[in-house]
Design a protein around this nucleic acid. Structure first.
Length: 745
DNA sequence: ACTTCCGTTCTTTTT
DNA sequence: GAACGGAAGT
């Protein structure tokens, strides 16, 4: 490990910092992960710090995993190092000490869907008007209180909200469960009420490092401050320009005020960008400079200019998808990038559908990050509910979920009666399921209930000693879930069966990754993990994801779609600012829009080589057609670059845009110099081929596709993107592809 | 008890 | 356009 050679002077400064508080302000692509991992490696390798005395906190499991990997590479098995998300850290603390707070150590972690389920139950119990009191709003209030570390009684909430919080929290405890925000709040309580525990961890962690510090919220920062008193070896890394989670409670104040909370703190700025071409960096800089409140920073690079940043307009989201797909194929071909190095970014998950369609149409393999998560699928959650019950019989939400899945004659009515009984006895639903309690039930139902109880007990015995993957298998078999799906015999049920079988693989993978094959370990992972590491790294697949999800990643080629007012910046943020403006006219500034601008900045700075922005004239959302002007951010980016974006610096990439027939007067492109844009008309080839009614003759021919191989044409028709074929491929089955992308045999 | 079908309502981003 | 809730049908 030759630090001097592998790091620049600023990075070296950060890595070698001897001790005490350290703030690293790291611009996008400035090698902050490098700095942080090298610092840990340096501590272990050169300073003789034991790995288990180091705590590294990150925001995503993926980031944590990557950090472990990179450190392992630098210093060999850094066993014992804690590299975790804040939430896993909280969970781990509670796993050891939950008894001090009145919870059992085998607690269940509720994700937001579980919380919602519980919340709905509470609303029913409180008998509140469902129209007036929405679960989401109630839960949001609870979450806000928890982020301020306020329990139900000190929440400051009034009326129904207060009742809701009290009952919600009581139910969580009765179910021996924590929700997401509890993991942080209760960890705080643990430290606060049990100084001896805090002292133990203070002594243990000689060095604490926090990545993405700009995204910490108040509760997380408080936890951190307890763990690290002033003068401690606390190193935080962040970039205020990449703070995009204010809506989730992140406080930029944490990074802005760090230096005063930790007097004597050393500040290091990393401003040299190693990632992006000069053009991309320049465009991103033009955008972010419009923000009023930021740490002054000047990113620079020695990279070559690269191709210019480009923008394209499409008529609607379907054309946009086609434009992106074509662009991907052109760029990949021209520069020789792999499809795995391409990302398509968007503001809201709902945009992914049209884009996926486009990818399929053009035969581009892709994966979607986030959105429909593997662990959110109904069947997966059912199986997980069984597993959680085995581990913790008191978890009523789980019991309710699986009570009649697969169907066993216990419908709504029986369920309600059991809930009422449990209420009466003041215990969990499982505990109330005994012969003497069920005397009021009809024979058939009573048998069904007792049968369920026996089933769960049997499962518990089967699974208690075995590995997580065996437990999953036992659930699929013993509960009849597998047989139930098989008996349906539909395409859909087959897919669902595959999903739960995938869960077995997931359990095995996880066991291999963490060395922990217990059911407890698996369930903790499942609760805290998003699907990130299940989806194998895009091997030759284009990645589709939200701008938020893209943070921390990088790609050779990036498309940012939906660059329209109302979408990016999102209409909600415009509303928020307007409300603020009305409330305090003098001092207000566009807080929310500035966050949207940072979001766009984050997306742009993911790109290494080629960056393309797209927008549409009209877009159908929520079943309605919206006509929005191009995003103000385009104006920010292109006002100075507009005409020079195609300057002689590099050859223009002709990715075949659409005709911007500007006789559409609703919003003329003047603010964007739309007349300057690439205008390659589809209509030529379109009409040419549309006129060719020999399309039907193609049916029955054999074609070859680059990705799918050989196949037989079973249908042909025209689409707005050009002629489409339905082809039965030998390797992948039936697909719909563009005529342009197959060769006739 | 369970399924299916229809109308209503909302859509930012996530650990 | 989907996800939920309610109502009617099997």
């Amino acid at each position: 490990m030759d630090l001097e050679r592998e790091l620049n002077p600023e990075q070296l400064d950060a890595v070698m910092h001897p001790g005490g508080p350290l703030l690293i302000l790291a611009g996008a692509g400035s090698g902050k992960t490098r700095a942080i991992t090298y610092r840990i490696a340096h501590l272990v390798h050169d300073m003789g710090v034991e790995p288990w005395k180091i705590l590294a906190l990150t925001f995503t499991n993926k980031a944590a995993g990557e950090m472990c990997e990179r450190i392992d590479k630098l210093v060999g098995e850094a066993s014992g190092l804690w590299a975790l998300t804040f939430h896993s850290f909280g969970a781990r603390l509670l796993r050891r000490h939950a008894d001090l707070l009145g919870w059992g150590k085998d607690f269940t972690i509720y994700d937001d869907r579980d919380s919602k389920r519980l919340g709905k139950l509470i609303l029913e119990k409180l008998d509140l008007d469902r129209q007036l009191y929405k679960v989401d709003r109630m839960l949001a209030a609870v979450e806000r209180a928890k982020r301020k570390l306020r329990g139900p009684r000190q929440s400051g909430l009034k009326g129904p909200q207060r009742d809701f919080y009290i009952l919600y929290q009581r139910s969580l405890k009765a179910a021996n469960a924590f929700d997401f925000s509890d993991l942080i709040m209760q960890a705080n309580f643990l430290f606060d009420r049990h100084p001896e525990v805090l002292e133990k961890y203070r002594r243990r962690f000689e060095h604490v490092l926090v990545d993405e510090f700009q995204d910490t919220d108040r509760a997380q920062y408080t936890l951190l401050r307890m763990l690290c008193p002033p003068g401690a070896n606390l190193c935080v890394v962040g970039d205020d320009d990449q703070s995009i989670y204010r809506w989730r409670g992140a406080e930029i104040g944490n990074i802005m005020g760090f230096a005063s909370d930790y007097p004597g703190c050393k500040t290091v700025k990393l401003e040299r960008n190693y990632r992006s071409t000069a053009h991309i960096l320049q465009a991103a800089g033009l955008l972010i400079h419009k923000n009023s409140r930021r740490h002054p920073k000047a990113l620079w690079t020695e990279m070559e200019p690269g191709p210019p940043v480009e923008k394209f307009q499409a008529r609607d989201e379907r054309e946009e998808a086609g434009l992106v797909a074509r662009g991907i194929l052109k760029i990949v071909q021209q520069y020789g990038f792999s499809l795995g190095q391409v990302a398509v970014l968007y503001r809201v998950n709902a945009q992914s559908r049209a884009l996926e369609e486009g990818m399929r149409l053009f035969g581009i393999p892709y994966r979607v990050v986030g959105g429909l998560r593997f662990f959110d699928r109904a069947e997966v959650r059912d199986v997980v509910s069984y597993l959680r019950l085995i581990q913790n019989y008191k978890s009523d939400v789980d019991l309710m979920r699986i009570m009649n899945v697969p169907p066993r004659g216990l419908g709504q009515k029986s369920r309600q009666r059991i809930v009422a009984l449990a209420e009466e006895h003041g215990c969990s639903m499982f505990e109330v399921m005994t012969p003497q309690n069920l005397s009021g039930f009809r024979k058939k139902e009573r048998e069904a209930v007792l049968q369920l109880r026996r089933l769960l007990e049997q499962l518990g015995q089967e699974a208690s000693a075995s590995s997580a993957s065996d437990a999953v298998e036992a659930v699929i078999k013993t509960t009849g879930y597998g047989r139930w799906l098989e008996s349906m015999g539909t395409m859909e049920s087959e897919g669902r069966l595959e999903n739960i079988k995938e869960l077995i693989t997931a359990a095995q993978d996880m066991a291999r990754g963490t060395g922990d094959e217990s059911l407890e370990g698996f369930l903790e992972q499942v609760a805290l993990l998003t699907d990130m590491d299940l989806a194998q790294e895009g091997q030759g697949m284009v990645t589709l994801m939200t701008l938020h999800a893209s943070k921390g990643l990088e790609f050779d080629v990036v498309f940012i779609t939906g660059m329209e007012e109302g979408l990016l910046p999102h209409s909600r943020s415009l509303d928020d600012d307007e409300r603020q403006m009305l409330k305090s006219p003098g001092r207000a500034f566009p807080r929310a829009v500035e966050e949207e601008r940072r979001l766009c900045y984050v997306g742009m700075t993911r790109a290494r080589q080629v960056l393309t922005l797209t927008y549409t004239k009209s877009r159908s959302m929520a079943g309605q057609v919206a006509i929005n002007p191009p995003s103000r951010f385009l104006k920010d980016i292109f006002q100075d670059m507009g005409k020079t974006s195609k300057a002689p610096l590099a050859e223009v990439v002709d990715i075949g845009g659409f005709d911007l027939d500007d006789d559409d007067e609703i919003f003329h492109g003047d603010m964007l110099h739309a007349s300057d844009e690439e205008t390659v008309d589809y209509s030529d080839e379109y009409s040419q081929l549309a006129g060719d009614d020999g399309l039907d003759d193609l049916v029955g021919r054999t074609v070859v596709h680059q990705a799918f191989g050989k196949g037989l044409v079973s249908g042909a028709r025209m689409s707005p993107h050009g002629p489409m074929l339905t082809v039965v491929f030998n390797s992948v089955g039936t697909k719909t592809v563009m005529l342009d992308y197959v060769k006739m045999k």
